[in-house]
Design a protein around this nucleic acid. Structure first.
Lengths: 333, 333
DNA sequence: TCCTAGAATGCAAACGATTGCAACCGATCG
DNA sequence: CGATCGGTTGCAATCGTTTGCATTCTAGGA
């Protein structure tokens, strides 16, 4: 934990002025090559590292992107972060990450805090109320929303219309005529979209669609077990894979065979979805790409352009053993 | 996206100097109450928000803690982050998070970058080589290691001696005499600790312990399936729950019944461990507490004290259905 | 020999805040 | 009535950089 070496120390040691050192280190062509070499050598010897905070402070806008996610423990979000982080770093930016814990009030607090340090904001699956969102958009920095549609902001989302169609067509193809949707958190825009598109598609396919409330975690899925069984559906679609896996577990504990008595399918296809028992049919999406696209929208905007049109990502159905034809009605043994 | 309001704008509007505004806003007792009220009112009206970057720059050390984790998608790490984040925020600090992707070289790069913006570093389950670690510790900021033991740094870790004893005693209690450990990444210190303590305890309990290499993800666990079956062990301990769940899935796919033919237990007890099929016996630990303790060590150190003694957290065995007495030998059907 | 163009370098202001110190005020006291 | 004092307030330096502009120096042409 040595003392910091500053520009002035290098200048003194090299026998020049700070401006010369600064220019030499930053590769200005105003400086003679010999001096550049000398300064570089001295700087290296002294172990000089520019104070990034001072640099950025002087330069203006902070090179930081503030990001909020509802739940860091959900691989969906961590992979979005991975993509966003890679893109942002390539563009010279860092990520400041905040987790709201699925709580809209906390998310608002986070936004308020992050904006102090960030030159831009990315709200991932924002749980903000409409009013909260307005406040966030009123901040003096550009905002991109992932999986949430808003005006005056960048928008990157998964195409849930396609998603819901893929799921329902798969299930009807297996002969299911009555499907239950186990929903997510009420504050989730994407839950709303899933419901909306499922309903529409169900109508078009002449499928009966029921809905119950669930949540976002394995616990929520497990707890939804009884409600699922009491519905008369032969197939279930869950808000996400964690819920789906929890539900599978309840079915197992209660002797309901999947898929012969009940089919289960879900959104997101997180890695462990392949390792549930039975493996979960789910909708794969390019989550990392969501992050990348968010960054692209941001750079365009930071470059002075208007917001581009929303980017929509098309998911892909991954069929696994949790869905099949219904051979008999589920009943608790 | 309005223009930023600065201190000078407030001063002009309030008809005073910047110093007065600064003091009024920061609650100095040198200012008369009326002026404070007036300045506060004007500031509020103008929507003034202090430029945190300028503040911190002036004040000196950055109020940021840089953190590295190997894998954001592993709930173990996200919960450590949760605890660390809560504690750090309570202390007025923010987190700058970097993910190394289990790659030591990338982690070194991360450290190098994070240190430019951070007043302290937390390395979570660092995969750094000894040399890399030395470099990291030579940085001009205090460093805390979570789940890695080093000199001249803060250390917070899980007590793997206890952990391994709990696991092996549980298994021997069920009658197992031959146990296989499916290991983690070679760069993981905690994998080393698990192996070391397992070996020692196995010797003490007169259990035969075999080892194979695995990894950190569900895929690694699945891929270890054949090796597990070819070993003559009746019980398996996996590096972590993701590996355990992957392994369970392979056993299922290949007709091996758990636990009647093979018991599986693991470290960490991440939430979905309860929802694997069968539910996974695992070692619960207070991950969020790891983060908290790391912060406590840091504050002590930042306060000028020497590094406190390492904090060791004792895990707790959660028995679930993946372990039981071996009734017959596993064989692929 | 003197002047000047052009290259190289240094001086000092700036980014937005905090803070030590000096200056100022009215009131009290001698 | 002037000196003093406590309570307020403002001036200016400062944090570590970058950068516009002035300055210096060298060499070449007249």
């Amino acid at each position: 934990m040595a003392e910091r070496v500053r520009l002035i120390d290098v200048a003194r040691e090299a026998g020049t002025s700070v401006s010369t050192v600064s220019r030499a280190l930053n590769g200005s062509d105003l400086i003679s090559p010999e001096v550049v070499a000398h300064v570089r050598a001295v700087a290296g010897q002294l172990g000089y590292r520019a104070d990034k905070r001072a640099q950025e402070f002087k330069l203006g806008r902070p090179l930081t992107v503030g990001v909020t996610v509802p739940d860091l423990a959900n691989p969906f979000f961590s992979e979005v972060l991975k993509g966003l982080n890679a893109a942002a770093r390539a563009g010279g930016y860092r990520l400041l990450i905040g987790e709201s814990g699925e709580d809209p009030a906390e998310e608002l607090r986070l936004v308020d805090e992050l904006v102090d340090y960030s030159g831009a904001l990315v709200l991932c699956s924002s749980r903000l109320t409409r009013a909260g969102l307005e406040k966030a958009l009123a901040q003096p920095v550009p905002v991109v929303c992932i999986n949430r549609n808003v005006k005056n902001a960048g928008v990157v989302a998964i195409d849930y219309r396609v998603a819901s169609r893929l799921l329902l067509e798969h299930l009807t193809g297996l002969g299911h005529r009555r499907v239950l949707y186990v929903g997510g958190p009420a504050s989730s825009w994407s839950d709303g979209e899933r419901r909306r598109t499922l309903r529409r598609t169900a109508r078009a396919l002449d499928v009966t669609l029921d809905e119950v409330d669930g949540g976002w975690s394995g616990n929520h899925g497990y707890d939804a077990g009884p409600a699922v069984l009491h519905s008369r559906a032969t197939a279930v679609i869950t808000f996400n894979d964690l819920v789906g896996i929890g539900l599978l577990s309840w079915m197992y504990d209660n002797g309901v065979e999947v898929p012969s008595e009940l089919s289960v399918a879900s959104y997101d296809d997180i890695p462990i979805a392949a390792y549930s028992r039975p493996p979960l049919t789910s909708l794969r999406n390019e989550r990392a790409r969501l992050g990348e696209l968010a960054w692209q929208q941001l750079t365009k905007r930071l470059g002075g352009d208007a917001w581009p049109a929303p980017d929509l990502l098309t998911p892909e159905l991954v069929m696994r053993a949790s869905t099949g034809t219904a051979r008999r009605r589920a009943r608790i043994r």
